[in-house]
Design a protein around this nucleic acid. Structure first.
Length: 515
RNA sequence: GCGCCUGUAGCUCAGUUGGAUAGAGCAACGGCCUUCUAAGCCGUAGGCCGAACGUUCGAAUCGUUUCAGGCGCACCA
């Protein structure tokens, strides 16, 4: 971002000098085709209307004038080229090099750092985690890492629904098995339920099991909040309901207590207390979010499956009613995962026990491959996860392609006897130059991925970086006799290694020294 | 019926705050290991970006309509 910021600053300075006020927003971005330049701006298109000149003519003028606005010595060689109305910027190698050397490269660039609470997975403790939870786990954990990386302060939380109907059914199923009775209808009959018979507290046992799986998946939460003890036993749910009633936004009807959520965009009012006297999950949920809000965050982010889409408006309405506009409430919806084995869908049912658990997936294909598969696709596209395919592909799985690049660099470093220099001389092989320039764009990718909450961008960036590196490896031998060249290339290798490792780290994937 | 997501190469998907000839991997075909790990590199072929209309100097990207698939629309969780 800092590099891009320099360019934006130069353009702004020019506009101020010329007393030009753009009619709408312009930007400096990575060109789609990197061979056009390192950065590009659409400013000429934007100014065309105000200046009543063609974008091409404006671009010509700007290209001539802009270089003198880069005051820093290192930037002196910058090329500013007009092209079909675009303005392309080609950075001097030294600028790229210096940016990469900076300890804080692609780190802490967020303009408005926030205190964020990210809640994800939050699976009921009624069975093992499945592949769908795996998607939220991979997504949430990577997102947390990304948000931290750009400078937010992030805490992660797993909300444990250890109260309510489903829990009662599970307990009933366990005792039924224990006493040799058949599992009640609508109960849980999966194989794992039989194993719970030995446990003094089946819920805790399942929670621990989930924790082990997540830990194997390299996903660790700052907090596991248990609904029963933090919300019900403390009376906080009732308190939240009372507050709503006090505000006059509840009403009784047919023996139930309703929350007037239609006042805040919902299409029907929601029940807080059923006519049976039981509290709804919705009541507990808004109490929970109220508690989160009171802890003083700027933003609450939740990751939910698309099947909870209908829930957003009402929970948002509840939060707004209880705590106001203060903490932003943001829900990231992820589309569902279909688990396949050789193209045939594996139905996910905890009740029948007909399922493949996340633990089994991890054991079968490994955490690295599983996480990569789950995070590489945009969260809003439906994901088909084929176990056999994931296993079969494991040799040309993109994750290995990326890891291989890292391992290759480590191998080069092991074989090299020269020490890297601090700077690069200016004569670079074209492939080498492309690689260097691509490294620089990590900065922009991280910012974009974090601000749009799209970790899959990092996975795609890494694949592309690995591609650039493998080409470089092929075209440019590192350990050559010419010491200047060797040191240069070694220095580039070190940068690639660092970015690969940092990128993989953001995805919670290992960067092996050898393969 | 209403809401949200998706529809891009044979397959799996990038690209979507409008921009420069629409990209990658797999599959297919053809090259490259006496040289730092061939889990690699290079090349060829493959497209009316679901369809139609509209907004714009400019649309895969925005709007309307429509078709197809997924997921929701409880005093269930």
């Amino acid at each position: 971002m800092r590099t891009r910021l320099r360019i934006e600053t130069a353009i702004s300075a020019y506009l101020i000098d010329q007393k030009i006020e753009p009619s709408s927003t312009w930007l400096v971005e990575l060109p789609k085709d990197r061979s056009n330049g390192d950065y590009a701006s659409n400013i000429a298109f934007v100014l065309a209307r105000t200046l009543k000149k063609s974008p091409q003519a404006i671009a010509q003028d700007l290209a001539k004038a802009l270089p003198s606005y880069f005051k820093d010595k290192a930037w002196i060689g910058i090329q500013v080229l007009p092209a079909k109305g675009f303005i392309n910027f080609i950075l001097p190698v030294t600028v790229c090099w210096q940016a990469l050397q900076d300890e804080t490269f692609a780190k802490g660039d967020e303009v408005n750092p926030e205190r964020i609470l990210l809640e994800y997975v939050s699976a009921n403790p009624t069975g093992p985690l499945h592949i769908g939870h795996g998607r939220w786990a991979a997504l949430g954990d990577s997102l947390a890492r990304l948000l931290k990386r750009v400078g937010h302060s992030v805490e992660t939380e797993f909300y444990v629904n250890d109260a309510g109907n489903q829990i009662d059914k599970l307990i009933a199923s366990v005792s039924a098995i224990k006493e040799g009775r058949p599992v009640p209808e609508e109960g849980y009959g999966g194989g794992y339920v039989k194993d719970l018979v030995e446990e003094s507290d089946p819920i805790v046992a399942l929670m621990k099991q989930q924790q082990v799986t997540l830990s194997d998946f390299r996903v660790v939460f700052n907090a596991w909040t248990r609904e029963k003890e933090t919300l019900h036993e403390t009376g906080l749910v009732q308190k939240a309901i009372d507050q709503l009633t006090l505000k006059g936004i509840t009403y009784s009807e047919k023996g139930a207590l309703f929350f007037r959520s239609t006042d805040r965009g919902d299409d029907k009012d929601r029940v807080l207390i059923k006519s049976t006297g039981e509290l709804t999950y919705f009541a507990a949920d808004i109490a929970y979010h109220q508690q989160k809000a009171l802890r003083g965050y700027d933003r609450l982010i939740n990751i939910w499956g698309a099947d909870h889409h209908g829930y957003i408006t009402r929970v948002k309405a509840g939060i707004k009613a209880l705590v106001g506009e203060k903490p932003e409430f943001e829900v990231l919806l992820g589309q569902l995962v279909t688990l396949l084995r050789e193209g045939v869908e594996v139905r996910m049912s905890k009740r029948t026990g007909d399922m493949v658990s996340l633990q089994e997936v991890i054991d079968e294909i490994g955490t690295d491959a599983a996480r990569f598969f789950l995070v590489i696709k945009n969260a809003d596209t439906h994901l088909d996860f084929d176990l056999e395919l994931a296993k079969k592909q494991s040799n040309d799985n993109p994750v290995f392609y990326v890891q291989y690049a890292h391992a290759r660099i480590c191998s080069i470093l092991r074989k090299s006897e020269t020490k890297p220099l601090v700077h690069v001389h200016l004569e670079l092989h074209p492939t080498e130059l492309k690689l260097l320039k691509f490294l620089l764009s990590f900065e922009d990718e991280v910012i974009l991925a974090a601000s749009r909450r799209e970790p899959h961008r990092i996975a795609n960036y890494l694949i592309e970086l690995a591609t650039h590196f493998h080409s470089f490896y092929h075209d440019c031998k590192v350990n050559v006799d010419d010491q200047v060249v060797a040191q240069n290339r070694l220095a580039i290798c070190l940068s690639v290694k660092r970015i690969l490792a940092e990128g993989l780290e953001l995805l919670g994937i290992s960067a092996p020294e050898s393969m």
